[in-house]
């Protein structure tokens, strides 16, 4: 499944769009992300599913639009 990255996470993972093996929910997605892109573990980010910030562990499918959002410090 494809994951869209914003801000500093693009550098942490090496691109604005990354591909990982599909996972059934957000907890397993995050685990897989950290294994495949260990630098992501050093950043605070939220996960959005279909442009809605996820508040709990949601079930996901390959067709869902997943995005990782960091806060931006700059001003």
């Amino acid at each position: 499944m494809q994951i869209k990255l914003f801000g500093v996470l693009q550098e942490a993972a090496g691109g604005s769009l990354i591909e990982i093996e599909a996972t059934p929910d957000l907890v397993s997605l995050k685990e897989k992300l950290i294994i495949n892109f260990p630098m992501l573990n050093y950043y605070n980010f939220q996960i959005a599913v279909n442009q809605v910030k996820a508040e709990t562990n949601l079930t996901i499918s390959e067709t869902d639009e997943i995005a990782l959002l960091p806060p931006y410090a700059g001003g």
Binding site: Y43, N44, A73, G74
Partner: peptide, 19 residues
């Protein structure tokens, strides 16, 4: 929106990166 306080070491602003 962003519940956790960032680790100071990961703070990146315009003085440490370009804009």
């Amino acid at each position: 929106a962003f519940p956790e306080i960032e680790n100071d070491e990961t703070i990146i602003n315009c003085t440490t990166t370009g804009v």
